[in-house]
Design a protein around this nucleic acid. Structure first.
Lengths: 216, 216
DNA sequence: CCGCATCCGGGGCGATACTG
DNA sequence: CAGTATCGCCCCGGATGCGG
């Protein structure tokens, strides 16, 4: 991208992260650090192969991404965020919070993908006070998710888990609203959400960031 | 811009604000709400006339911007941020904070413009505790600035002011570092900054947001 | 002057094909 | 699997024109 040529922190930042696809690549690496080229392609439907390739090179040159030559058995390269790349978390959080209302009017037929729940849960979901970590299994959209929420950090992975404290089953936007506390448990149940396990752990969850915004 | 076509808050947000120039237009309107077309051009060196025009239309269609048909005497149109547009402040704040370190290696010969100080001061500068508003006059870069910091809000305008509590004169990056509290008063003085007036008001200033990052 | 609309050259982007 | 190569298109940047 051509530089804006301004001595301004926003403009200089956009010189680096303003290219098409770049922030979405960061988003993907933020939630699944250590990712293969092909998995990035799958996570970013519509990106051209050459674009992904050149973006990754630029991002490496700009210090956002580091490539790593794989663990011994397999012979593939992995991409990781550097610390500087991780530092983009507040940027994604702010953009995501602002974009939340756009989720409401279900864009005619845009498919919902469970994977897209990973980032908001990782960024916004946290534990109220101290206490034992909470493990959730979330059954919505096209594939199951599991989330582990500790005091410091929330990590979300694709796939089920067996030792979950609570299993949540239901429509994507309702489950989303419940987890981000824009819907009460009662509302969620009424909208068809099923809770299996210790529903009490929901009391121990909190969200950060979400200012006002629409009803997801 | 072509949509990313993902049911994800970040992707949907970028569908709206991800276009080239869009966020810089928001930045400009954020700091000088009610701006004329021509003044936007001057604030965005390098933007093509047709691009500015079409961006403003898109932004209006997306509810970020409203055009207003001017106060009676003059016959020009003004552009304002809507509430939805104002809600992008945290996005610009996060991007700016991330981009701050990029300011350090003075991009070979990029001219420093005082106007570019307005946003960071407006976003990050605040008053410690309660108390009377503080008015600063800042003499650095290509034109003077004045900032009024109250409990709620900081507003920065181009041009001098007569009733300032404190006048600050010096090199841009040093003045910037002083105001954002990355340099002490002693360091700033040593770097050639002159303080005229009640230097004590500096004690009453605080900054928000700035995490770690390089030395501006 | 102010607020665009039009035209034109260049480059970034998107889709597909191809290779180690 | 992990990219590179190629090609058409459209967006962007720069200049000019034009009505109010």
């Amino acid at each position: 991208m051509k530089s804006y040529g301004q001595q301004c922190a926003v403009a200089l930042a956009l010189d680096v992260i303003g290219d098409r696809w770049t922030l979405l690549i960061v988003r993907e690496l933020m939630v699944a650090d250590g990712t293969r080229y092909t998995d990035l392609q799958k996570a970013l439907p519509g990106i051209a192969s050459n674009l992904l390739s050149s973006r990754l090179k630029e991002m490496e040159a700009n210090g956002l991404v580091a490539r790593e030559d794989a663990p011994p058995p397999v012979a593939t390269g992995l991409f990781r965020l550097t610390e500087r790349g991780q530092a983009l978390a507040p940027v994604l959080a702010a953009i995501g919070a602002w974009g939340m209302p756009l989720l409401a009017p279900r864009k005619a037929g845009l498919p919902f993908r469970s994977r897209n729940l990973r980032l908001p849960l990782q960024l916004y979901l946290t534990l109220r006070g101290a206490g034992k970590p909470v493990t959730l299994e979330i059954e919505t959209g096209d594939e199951p998710l599991s989330a582990r929420i500790t005091g410091n950090r929330t990590t979300v992975k694709l796939g089920a888990v067996k030792d979950a404290d609570l299993r949540i089953v239901g429509e994507p936007h309702v489950v989303f609203g419940l987890l981000l506390q824009r819907r009460t448990v009662a509302e969620a149940r009424k909208a068809g959400v099923r809770l299996e396990g210790d529903a009490g752990v929901l009391e121990r969850l909190a969200t950060r960031w979400l200012g006002e915004g629409g009803h997801a």
